[in-house]
Design a binder for these strands. Sequence first.
DNA 1: CCGTCGTCTGTAACCGGTTACATAGACGCG
DNA 2: CGCGTCTATGTAACCGGTTACAGACGACGG
Lengths: 342, 342
Amino acid sequence: MREEGVLKPASATIRDVARHAAVSVASVSRALNGHSNVHPDTRARVLASAKSLGYVPHAGARSLSLARSHAIGVVLPDLHGEFFSEIVRGMDREAGAHGYHLLLSNMHADAELAAQAMRSMRGRVDGLIVMAPQIDATGLDEALPAGIPTMLINSPDSTGRGAMRVDNRAGIDAIVRHLLASGRRALVHVAGPAGNIDARERREGFLAAMARHAPGQPSRVIEGNFREEAGERAVATLLDEGEAVDGIVAANDMMALGALQALREAGLDVPDAVAVTGFDDVPLARYMGLTTVRVHLADMGARAVARLIDALEHPSDRPGGDTEWLTPTLVVRTTTTERTDP
Amino acid sequence: MREEGVLKPASATIRDVARHAAVSVASVSRALNGHSNVHPDTRARVLASAKSLGYVPHAGARSLSLARSHAIGVVLPDLHGEFFSEIVRGMDREAGAHGYHLLLSNMHADAELAAQAMRSMRGRVDGLIVMAPQIDATGLDEALPAGIPTMLINSPDSTGRGAMRVDNRAGIDAIVRHLLASGRRALVHVAGPAGNIDARERREGFLAAMARHAPGQPSRVIEGNFREEAGERAVATLLDEGEAVDGIVAANDMMALGALQALREAGLDVPDAVAVTGFDDVPLARYMGLTTVRVHLADMGARAVARLIDALEHPSDRPGGDTEWLTPTLVVRTTTTERTDP
DNA sequence: CCGTCGTCTGTAACCGGTTACATAGACGCG
DNA sequence: CGCGTCTATGTAACCGGTTACAGACGACGG
């Protein structure tokens, strides 16, 4: 039983406005949406009524009848700090500029949960941006809902979808060349988690770069998981084994920072004794003087949104199913070269 | 392995399922939503049809008829890096755990745009989380849509809304006491932007703490804007004037880091010559050894979501219009005390 | 054998917008 | 004066779900 002491501030509907302005709902709709075939007097009356009733259109109803929600679903893995914020911020900026909203849904490595998350977005988003580096190609294909425009970021290829990819091999190649050029020879790669596509490409890129630019040199890989502690553990392992190392190529910045800290705590000078490099160029890297390659995460997110919106608003164009590669740029800082005063 | 016979691009609706299973839409709806009054045979037939058609319920339509969207609108100012990601992550975690989505909308300092953003969420979210530290109380009251449950974060009070607030005065008080206890006397506060409620409270907190704990000491305030450069500029100003200073109390971490860098470039030792403190404890602060107060941003976001969802699902309870204060905790690092090996 | 009850199902009216189509006037013209 | 055109408006059918209500049917008790 509804016992409302005061009058309930239930939002006005378009029919309330129509009644108040003594016109039909069609005229209200036309007036509010700026259609041309509305008499100026009618439009004025409608606008006045809408304002006086505090009418705000019901976006849900609107998108149901238009089959257009002006929202973009974003499905990301459980990302850490800066990585997450940079990407989302780039997306948000671009989406906002085009009048779109972002509907977020995190997903935990599991492909089944990812599929679940994507399904639950049917009917509330116009398109999807999916980042699933840890899911294999067939798993991804099964999880992706059909019939909704989708952009993939750093995920396995899926036929017919647009994609944004970081050129991991080129990035690692630049790192390796830089280290070799500065005289380092005994390089070790601290890899990312198995099953992650970026981690895999960086590992392969490392081995390929070594084979190409320093044939004959041994190239070692230590397993990691993209987390800071993995970098520390990798250094501990190397020290335990007493192996000669003068360069550590981490698969991402956080592991590089872990390694950096462990090296310094062990009394080894960076970069004199050992050089350290990362990957991604999170903001933290600049503060810590970490040499790395810059990915421009925000731009990648923004670009993904821009392409998706373009595909949404010009469906006539080709399906946009191509992959755009972003080439990361080398950023040399003090973990590989002496500080030179600016 | 499934054969792709006829490729049906348009998604199936509940009526398609009903036709396929030779039942009414009502039965399909009941079967899929687990109502009890459905014959087991019917339910099985419906589920089979739904699966074979690849049916996924249309969330938009569903929320229209249920007047429930299971989405929470999030309106944030244009936040920087870690601050943004920490809060959003906390919210996302909590929302996901309760089966809610987050609908993001950035807003640029302008109150009018904020109002716009909130209005555009009518009908697609069940509740709103708003963080508007830069809008004054009356502006906020006008912008907030009526009739939708709202939680405020670090915003001016608005009657009848729940709120989460950081106890800025307590945080600054702890900082000031810590500095005074370590023998510093000539403290300077680098303030945040005018109009920002957190900035204002921290400034007032600084003056109050100085008056209380070090009466007679001069207490100076330099204007800033929460950005790194403002910290650098503040130091430049102090050096120009040749004023004696042994402690800089920045209104947030980024300005503290800017000041830290400027001091070191000027050849002044931190903490020996000058101590530096921040506010927020962004992850970066730990790496830079910055003494600060920790706000637990993620927890604040999560708590805001939890309270909002609670209010949504138990509307019978009291309107939840009270303010929850989070007391930040002092984190002492090397910018105020000598490094002692851990 | 009939009335009652409980279980299962279908019809149709919502939710709050948009818009195709029909229609009513106003106007111009032969 | 009759007819075609054009403009402004209203009616009602959507969009894709949920659910109140009513009806069909079988079981059960009297």
